[in-house]
Amino acid sequence: MAPPTSTCTAALDVALLPLFRHDVDWAQLRAVGKGRRSPLAALVPEEGEHLMQLADIGRIAGVGRAAAAQWRRRLPGFPASSGGKGTNPYLRTADVIQWLLAHRKLTMPSAAC
């Protein structure tokens, strides 16, 4: 018999939702009272690869787009572009998050599921 499974959402996934789910009214979500069903329960996971730009990287790391551009030019191992133009590239979100965490540019709360 297989052990029971439970859904565990990583803090990072939740933190990045506003960047990728523009269909959610975030002001309404924040106003949901205790004991009320969250509108997040109705979200369906999106398929495909998530991409972000330098401005998105700066936003989640708490710096400006220029700082993210400097990291891209000067620091080793910055993720390669997956599209876009030279000054406005698209990068794979998973690669960017791994790089930010590895270079201590982003800290995530530790929580057990």
Rank of each mutant, 00 (worst) to 15 (best):
R21I: 02
A15Y: 14
Q28T: 02
A42R: 08
C8V: 15
A80K: 10
A102Q: 05
S6F: 12
V63T: 14
L29M: 11
G62V: 05
P4G: 10
L29W: 12
G35H: 07
Y90Q: 11
A41D: 08
T93F: 07
T5A: 15
D95M: 06
G62Y: 04
L54W: 00
P45T: 03
R36W: 08
G35A: 08
T5L: 13
V44Q: 12
V32R: 07
D13R: 14
R92Q: 13
L91P: 01
A94Y: 01
V14A: 15
P109H: 08
L17H: 04
R65N: 08
V44T: 12
W99L: 01
A66Y: 12
P76F: 07
R65D: 03
A66G: 03
D13Q: 14
A67V: 14
R65G: 04
R36F: 11
M1I: 13
L101H: 01
A94T: 11
K34T: 10
T107A: 10
G62F: 05
P4R: 14
L75T: 09
T7D: 06
A27F: 00
R92M: 07
G86D: 13
A111D: 04
M1Y: 12
H50S: 14
P89A: 06
S38T: 04
L12H: 08
L100A: 03
A15V: 12
A31G: 07
M52Y: 02
L43M: 12
H103V: 00
T107R: 12
K85D: 13
L43N: 02
G84V: 05
H22M: 01
I57K: 00
L54P: 00
R92V: 13
S110I: 09
R36C: 04
W99R: 15
V14C: 08
A68F: 04
R72P: 15
T7S: 14
A66I: 13
A68R: 05
L19K: 05
A2K: 06
A68Y: 01
E47C: 06
A102V: 00
L51F: 12
G64A: 03
D23F: 02
P39G: 03
A11K: 07
R30E: 15
P39Q: 02
L19V: 02
P39M: 01
L100N: 03
A111K: 13
K34F: 10
G35D: 15
A61Q: 08
A102N: 13
R74A: 11
P4E: 14
R36M: 12
G58F: 14
L54G: 00
M1A: 14
A66H: 05
S81C: 09
K85W: 06
E49Q: 05
M1S: 14
R36K: 10
G62I: 11
D13V: 15
E47W: 10
E49R: 07
L29V: 10
P76E: 15
L101M: 02
G33H: 08
E49M: 07
C8S: 14
L40N: 09
L12D: 02
A112F: 09
L17P: 07
V14F: 10
Q53M: 02
R65P: 01
L19M: 07
Q28K: 04
I60N: 03
A41Q: 11
E47F: 08
T107I: 03
R30Q: 15
R65Q: 11
V63F: 09
A42Y: 02
